[in-house]
């Protein structure tokens, strides 16, 4: 491991500590703090509440409580769901797959379309295509995801009847075809913003690259234009996209929450919203922390990947 990787991991750990502090602060922001669930019930006296507080160690000084909380988080003890008394981590785990499935497929879709649009826009800069792509991306970034979801349901489910209007699969039919059929709508909706982001950044990255000296060198060698474009230009232009994809992760997670809500997709975002409805704070806080850690790991991974993909930074650097 290079010193860069170690430094980056230490930075990540420091950031994780700050993230946990913010999470802890929000937890205690609730009226009645972590006890709000009991207080909201209304059938408990102040004495009862004090007793529960003492039981849960909430009468101790905040820093002690924080350290205790952090220690338990690190050990994987994220508390129990109020709703079904399941451990929070396993509740999250059972919903993670659906969310990842949605996020991964839509990211792949966005990469394919977005990269293509961006590359073409850069090569034919200021062309009609470039103009439409630019305006289209700007509009795509401005459309509320949930509304786009409603439009997709209205057009493809209500109007044309091509797509189901929600859920991950039809009950009793978990075949791949059925799952894919259900995935198309939400995947399309979630991919909208990512596609716009990819096309914009890919375009400007390509514009940077195609004016580089080494592209001229490649041209002077007389190799086919297609190879120059893919082997020399796109290969380099994709490097910053690794970072962009990492930075885009929080937006993608937010989009997934909204998409899951519109399409009744049984993922983490829907679980989060349901838990808020049930005032299931351990799960709400758990998911909040979980997504933050996911984002943190995502950006860490993006950095390390960049490190591997760019020989100038890689472990083989002298």
């Amino acid at each position: 491991m290079s010193s860069y990787v170690i430094r980056r991991l230490l930075q990540g750990a420091g950031l994780l500590l700050l993230v946990s502090m913010i999470g802890f602060a929000i937890l205690h922001l609730a009226p009645g703090g972590p006890l709000s669930q009991f207080a909201a019930g209304g059938d408990m006296t102040q004495e009862d509440l004090d007793r529960v507080a003492a039981q849960l160690g909430l009468d101790r000084p905040l820093p002690i409580q924080y350290l205790d909380w952090l220690w338990r988080m690190l050990q994987g003890d994220w508390g129990l769901s109020y709703r079904d008394q399941q451990p929070v981590l396993s509740v999250i785990g059972s919903h993670l797959g659906a969310t990842l499935e949605l996020m991964l497929t839509s990211t792949l879709l966005a990469m394919m379309i977005g990269a293509w649009v961006g590359i073409l826009g850069a090569i034919r800069r200021y062309s009609l295509f470039d103009g439409f792509a630019t305006i289209g991306a700007m509009i795509a970034l401005s459309i509320p995801t949930f509304w786009f979801g409603l439009v997709v349901i209205y057009v493809f489910s209500v109007g044309l009847g091509w797509l189901p209007s929600g859920n991950r699969y039809t009950i009793g039919d978990e075949s791949l075809a059925n799952r894919v059929h259900h995935l198309i709508g939400p995947c399309m909706v979630l991919a909208l913003v990512s596609t716009a982001v990819w096309s914009r950044y890919m375009r400007s990255s390509m514009l940077d690259v195609i004016h580089q000296d080494y592209i001229r060198t490649a041209r002077s060698k007389g190799i086919p234009e297609r190879r120059i474009l893919i082997h020399h230009a796109v290969r380099n232009a994709l490097l910053p996209m690794i970072t962009i994809t990492g930075l885009h992760l929080p937006t993608l997670l937010s989009g997934a929450l909204v998409t899951e809500t519109v399409f009744t997709w049984p993922g983490m975002g829907r679980l989060f919203l349901d838990s808020i409805n049930y005032r299931d704070y351990p799960v709400v806080m758990g998911i909040l922390m979980f997504t933050a850690v996911l984002v943190l790991l995502g950006s860490l991974l993006a950095d390390l990947l960049y490190n591997v993909a760019d020989p100038r930074l890689g472990a083989n650097a002298t």
């Binding site: 420091g14 993230v19 922001l29 997670l253 808020i276 850690v293």
Partner: peptide
């Protein structure tokens, strides 16, 4: 600035909803 970085780790909708549920 590290605090800014940490805040940006929270996906905005999750943060908004978590807090709005509490107030």
């Amino acid at each position: 600035m590290r605090f800014v970085d940490a805040m940006l780790c929270f996906p905005s909708i999750f943060l908004l909803l978590a807090i709005s549920a509490l107030i």
